[in-house]
Write a protein that binds this DNA or RNA. Structure first.
Lengths: 189, 189
DNA sequence: TAGGTTGCCTAAAACCTTTAGGCAAATACA
DNA sequence: TGTATTTGCCTAAAGGTTTTAGGCAACCTA
């Protein structure tokens, strides 16, 4: 009988495509098996179950995001770095809404530790070196930036800005302007 | 046969409790029927199906959130209002993680229009009247604030800050300080 | 107390998830 | 090249979920 040639990585990859096309909550063993042209039970050779499948897609997404962020940050600093980094989040989520939804999953601690999430927060911290923040304030600023990126992108990708006035892209650049000035005038106590 | 006395509202209410205790993704017709002490099919008298059930919980959460926000905003302005408003989000999400997850659902347009989401964005705009932003900048600032609140609270409620250094509460007040100064020094073009 | 409404039931069809066990294609190795 | 092992996919089956259809009895109304 002809084989489809699946591997764990390939299954996660196809799952990510399915997530982007149909929504992350449509990513189930049975839907994925259909898309791979394989019987459901066959997936269980590659993946431990539905939850494991979704976690693998989340990790894949976080790694892709971290890779792109690293590339965007190379050779940039200060405002340029901030904007490039932020746009990686936004572009990724708009291009890959299913993967973005996957990346929002709550991961257990050591899965998270092995994922791109750590690299992303390290890069955020590196980005802040282009601004003159006191050491003690950096952790707070990292969290604020992470919140803005995650929050904005989830709202926009989720259609939260769809039916209101200004173009989201316009607001986005204004928001980044705002963050840049905030980082230059950070209220240290 | 003794009746349980369910109504559509009550079902949504019990669903919200279940979401907070077990996680929003555990809210299914069968799990909810068990908790209500009723057979699964009986739920379908009150709710059109699993998706409808989840949407009703989302709307319930958004309405609760908007009610609390309105109360917090009453009689406050400027920095006080900002902090009180922001804390409504944070306190609500930490106290009701399942409802918060529900509130993140993507709603179709006119469901969203009838939910507390509209009121929340109107209140955000009202809050900005305490700061001196040019009319054209307000829409951008509304979106930035919404992003920070949503993003922060999703990260914290999802455990994103669990295993890193400073207390989240400490970072939160510093982040709000930051937003306050940003709104006072908004870079109008 | 008769009549209609409605809340809950049982039954059943169609699906999904997961485990167990088997065959044959790929691979490793003598 | 032929044999042994691994492994990718299969069928079968058990148990759970979602949803629809149809029925009975408890509640409200008059």
């Amino acid at each position: 009988m002809a084989r489809a040639g699946l591997t764990t990585e390939l299954v996660a990859q196809v799952g990510a495509e399915l997530a982007d096309e149909a929504g992350f909550d449509q990513v189930t063993p049975s839907a994925l098996a259909r898309r791979c042209g394989v019987k459901v039970a066959s997936l269980y050779s590659h993946v431990a179950g539905g939850h494991d499948l979704r976690v693998r897609i989340a990790v894949l997404a976080l790694d892709e995001l971290a890779d792109r962020a690293a590339e965007a940050l190379a050779g940039r600093a200060g405002r340029d770095a901030l904007i490039a980094f932020a746009n990686v989040y936004r572009d990724y989520a708009l291009a890959h809404p299913g993967r973005w939804a996957a990346a929002q999953m709550r991961l257990d601690r050591d899965t998270a530790a092995k994922s791109g999430a750590i690299r992303l927060s390290q890069m955020t911290r590196a980005l802040l070196r282009g601004y003159d923040l006191p050491e003690a304030e950096q952790a707070h600023a990292v969290r604020l930036l992470g919140s803005v990126f995650n929050g904005w992108v989830s709202l926009e990708a989720g259609g939260g800005f769809s039916h209101s006035d200004p173009e989201p892209a316009e607001s986005w650049t204004r928001a980044l302007d705002g963050l840049d000035t905030l980082l230059r005038n950070w209220p240290s106590r």
